[in-house]
Amino acid sequence: MLKIRIIPTILFNNFKLVKGISFDSWRTVGSIMQAVKIYNLREVDELIVMDISATNNKSKVDLDLVNEIANETFMPLTVGGGIKSIEDVSNLLEAGADKVSINTSTFNNDFFVKEASKMFGRQCIVASVDYKIIDKEIVIFSNSGKVSQKVKFIDHIKKMEALGAGEIILTSINLDGTMKGYDIETLSKASANVEIPIIASGGAGKLKDFTDAVKNTDVSALAAASIYHFTNTTPRDVKIYLNSEKIPVRIN
């Protein structure tokens, strides 16, 4: 049986490991490589690494850093931040990423996802979708939460699937860093509307948040950052708890 993936997210800015609240109030929480080495040692299911400043600073993810991270990770590695062109994707894959996560560019260029997917295969293209709930409506944001988009939520995720994304990582900006639990309602809506796997992100703060998301939605993976940075909980603790709740996870 396919296991629910428990994925630590590593966000960084100028080579510093950071974490914010609702994509704001960023604080430095450690060194990137140290975190990567620990997660590899703990044999986590997968890693997501994102440069949160790349798009808005018009910079690129540092390829040497990706290479260094890849040297320490014998599990799947997703890298995101400021990806705009086929060349960017190619460079990241060559540096050692297994998948790339694309957000802002999916709005700027309709055919980018399609072209990238055709070129490198659906399996390495992850569409990242950030949103806020405003007046009970789901509003999508690009540029690390700075620019709102008009496209309807379900239309957008269906479009990403049709264009060739292999997975979607869905992040609630409202809940990000708050540790108040995942946005079950939106995750449930999303996972019922596409065939590709959904990675839930934003809000995990206690063990029960993970089981609530799995039991009430069809998400395939649960990403989190704050709970691992700011509490003693490890990805393994989460899996032991999920296992006790009869949810299939990989426990090594």
Binding site: M1, L2, K3, E167, I196, P197, D218, S220, A221
Partner: peptide
Amino acid sequence: DKIKIPHVGWNE
């Protein structure tokens, strides 16, 4: 609906 495609992740 529980079967997502692509099949992504850890499996026995």
